[in-house]
């Protein structure tokens, strides 16, 4: 079982940004994120970004706790991106964990820990919900 902060309750809503290039027009389900929008960070990038703040854990998938940020703040660096949400209970059902990894620019930052298998990615794209669709769907 990956690291999991059980003080974050199951109905906590998580947000993840979806770049326009990772939005596809699915002929069966409509506009949605590709499965590959749900990946762990690459190790070198994770070390580069999180290392200076003292984090040494394996890379997870970055998310924010929705109630601790705002839509405007969450996509402030690229307002054309989309946002999807899903509950902590879903990721736990997928044998993933969640840990808080706040950083100065993003105190609501967390990481979803555990291997993102095809099955995990599939459930995430099928069960996540748009908070905001990207301005364009380019995939």
């Amino acid at each position: 079982m990956p690291d999991d902060d059980t003080s974050i309750v199951g109905d906590t809503i998580l947000w993840r940004r979806i770049p326009q290039d990772q939005c596809i027009d699915d002929k069966m389900r409509g506009r949605r994120p590709t499965s590959k929008a749900f990946q762990n960070a690459t190790p070198e990038r994770h070390a580069e970004v999180m290392g200076p703040f003292g984090y040494t854990h394996d890379p997870g998938m970055s998310v924010d706790i929705a109630s601790e940020t705002t839509e405007e703040n969450f996509i402030k660096n690229n307002p054309v991106e989309g946002i999807v949400e899903f509950p902590v209970s879903l990721i736990r059902d997928l044998n993933q964990g969640i840990i808080r990894t706040p950083i100065p620019d993003d105190p609501a930052h967390c990481e979803v820990m555990g291997k993102k298998t095809q099955g995990v990615q599939k459930r995430l794209y099928r069960e996540c919900v748009w908070v905001k669709e990207p301005d364009e769907c380019l995939g």
Partner: peptide
């Protein structure tokens, strides 16, 4: 196909139609 970039530096092409999900990474 849909064509999407992957954060690892890869690419995925994919089709979702007629009850089939088909992805090639």
């Amino acid at each position: 196909p849909s064509v999407v970039p992957i954060n690892t530096g890869g690419v995925q092409i994919e089709w979702h139609m007629k009850n089939i999900d088909f992805e090639i990474e």
